[in-house]
């Protein structure tokens, strides 16, 4: 019961999903629709687990006055605020409509916080670029050149240099080189990586469906 049933469920659901691609008709398509809906519902319950766990850890930290407990209090207040507003005071299922209280928090707190978190990476990427783009050998030089063409070719100053200052012919403008690097060598490498990923994911998926890979049922 503890191991066999989950393995059977995994195999049945996985095979049905693959089967419905080749036989997109009733009743196979109906099964896959059910599985998709169940997947979504389980996801909604799973976030309960995550949220409850976060709240439990934060509340314990506050109750025991552990180091930096006041920040856990901020986490609890932040969660409670968007939870109460989103569930009770934001027009129900239309909570994402413009003008709801939920969207007020989204636009003025969540969005600035998440955008700035990623924008902050701009500074760290700049220092990482310095280390990565040193032409120590042939491979690093190719990395440097590709990044150089892409970065300079995608901003107006790139074309200003080659077009207006140096007055080079059209095919030597930096924007054209940036496009060529993105469309040809970059696409070639991306394709090799994507095909490699596809082979890896397909073999891992098969191992899971056939019950060879069973780490998710390991434990007690």
């Amino acid at each position: 019961m503890k191991r066999e049933v989950p393995l059977i469920i995994t195999a049945v659901v996985g095979i049905m999903y693959i089967f419905q691609y080749f036989v997109p008709h009733e009743p196979v398509s109906r099964f896959s629709d059910w599985f998709s809906d169940w997947f979504g519902i389980i996801q909604a319950f799973a976030i309960w687990l995550g949220a409850l766990n976060l709240m439990k850890l934060s509340l314990l930290k506050v109750a025991r006055r552990k180091k930096d407990w006041m920040y856990s209090l901020v986490t609890i207040i932040g969660f409670a605020a968007i939870f109460i507003v989103g569930i009770f005071f934001s027009r129900g299922a239309n909570f994402q409509e413009p003008g709801t209280r939920f969207m007020f928090i989204y636009d003025n707190v969540y969005d600035p916080l998440s955008s700035t978190m990623f924008a902050l990476l701009g500074f760290f990427v700049a220092s990482a670029s310095y280390r990565a783009f040193r032409a120590r050998n042939k491979e690093a030089t190719m990395l440097l050149l590709a990044a150089f063409f892409v970065m300079l070719g995608r901003v107006p100053v790139g074309d200003m240099i080659t077009k207006e200052w140096l007055q080079l012919p059209h095919w030597l403008w930096l924007s054209n080189w940036a496009d060529w690097v993105m469309n040809i060598p970059n696409t070639a490498g991306q394709r090799a990586i994507m095909i490699g990923i596809a082979l890896g994911i397909m073999s891992t998926s098969l191992r899971i469906i056939l019950g060879i890979e069973r780490t998710f049922v390991s434990g007690d």
Binding site: L54, V74, T75, S114
Partner: peptide, 29 residues
Amino acid sequence: YKFSEAAFVGISAGYWFVSLFWQNMYSKL
């Protein structure tokens, strides 16, 4: 920074909780 980061953690969790509640649990179930 720690204050903003803690707020981000709480609000992110709440945001996904509310979104999945209305979009999956309420609408489907």
